[in-house]
Design a protein around this nucleic acid. Sequence first.
DNA 1: TTCTTCATCGTACACTGTACTAAGTTAAAG
DNA 2: CTTTAACTTAGTACAGTGTACGATGAAGAA
Lengths: 264, 264
Amino acid sequence: MASERSSAGDPARTLNLLWRSSAAVSRRGPHRGLDVDAVVAAATDLADREGLEAVTMRRVAQALGVGAMTLYTYIPSKAELLDLMLDSAYTRMSRANIAGQPWRQRLIAIADENRVLFDAHPWAATVSTLRPPLGPGLIGKYEHELSALEGLGLDDVEMDDCLTHLLSFVQVSARALADVRAARTASAMDDEQWWAANAPLLARVLDERAYPLATRVGTAAGAAHRSAHDPDHAYRFGLHRVLDGLAVLIDRRRVAAGTQDRRK
Amino acid sequence: MASERSSAGDPARTLNLLWRSSAAVSRRGPHRGLDVDAVVAAATDLADREGLEAVTMRRVAQALGVGAMTLYTYIPSKAELLDLMLDSAYTRMSRANIAGQPWRQRLIAIADENRVLFDAHPWAATVSTLRPPLGPGLIGKYEHELSALEGLGLDDVEMDDCLTHLLSFVQVSARALADVRAARTASAMDDEQWWAANAPLLARVLDERAYPLATRVGTAAGAAHRSAHDPDHAYRFGLHRVLDGLAVLIDRRRVAAGTQDRRK
DNA sequence: TTCTTCATCGTACACTGTACTAAGTTAAAG
DNA sequence: CTTTAACTTAGTACAGTGTACGATGAAGAA
């Protein structure tokens, strides 16, 4: 299903893990053969190459040459592993210098950075961010992205709202793209093949007079994308709509603030 | 993860199932104790009450008083069962009469209808619609929703783009809401409790000077929503942004078409 | 009545996360 | 130096998953 991240574990321990703020004193037992970063790196590598469903405790352990249960001395459970993978991926994101650019360019840069993230790590788009991993990666990302919305006359809650709205959009797009890839590798049937197989069959069973609009528009859209849905096109189309939508709010706030230059 | 719908089965058989166009002649063996609708209804009921992860072949069969393998005489696999559940839910959606209203009201009605769907069937928001179930439910829904976008000067592909954009937004919102519920029942920890536990701990480990914006805005947003994310608020905020964004495109098309009345 | 077709469903397989337990290793305490 | 306590590493086990396979018996057709 959506995701099995619940992190029912101790929040304090999870945060310590994320910020790597362990006591790190000399311990008593045998020396540890790995560290948290090695586990996270192995799991991320596995997820990148074979998808999130390939990330099982046994397979991660195998990649590291240890037993499955050994991982549990480094992380409390799989949910925390996913948190660490996400925050680590956020940390490694490239952050363009967006100062001085008009706000629309800034937001496009933010959106594209996230799109690149999801392109490199498709699994990242599929995990719930309802309870985000509050680690240095996410916070650094948040700081950077908020800077694109600073100075536009928005109040703090509105800044968060706008950012959430933009990032949600990028995430759905990426999720759709991840689905395309997953479907391709899992079902050995291209999206285009699927549409090519279904469209004529559907045409036979579908009454054009009962569904005139659906037939007309569906045929046009299907022909244009050669599938039921084209995530790449949806991203390009949607991004402009999202920015146009934010522009209405931002212009309103800037007028209210008496700002002259609306372009910045 | 995201969803295990691949429908690698025969497309023709799947479409026949969706449109209930079976041969239905007198068969040879023993009489069938159930029909497809009974299976779909039982699975839907289970998903509504206990979430999609509770929908296992064994539990659906148990609810119907038959053995697990019996289900496979009605449906080819679980993927098709999900398709049938979705299409059936689409069929049962209430469709308001939106003719005569201004387009913005029409689109709000469409969005709300989908929100009601996802409220009654949270699992529906979590399954991938990349390869939608091409049944009478979806087609009827599509026809109805396209009628809200007809006559605005958009071409066919743009109508599909706008609808996809709007519905994607409703779906992310619903997904977030489904995550809230899932987290609540699974982890025995409220979203508010989670935030209350994490916020002070985070404040201790976070350097305000390194992340001034994140601290300021994050604190404000967290205080406003009493959690890291508020799906209800995000829906209300986002819907207006989406409509504003579509308005820019629609107004442009209407101007190009020389239409006088821009409000309709 | 015999033959053929089909619904039903028990068993089995290869998986999952992780609780529990046993064994072995190391540093601190006496 | 010896003892002890803490700790890492794993093997096994459990309750699950979707569904392939095959046995059993029921019912229409010949």
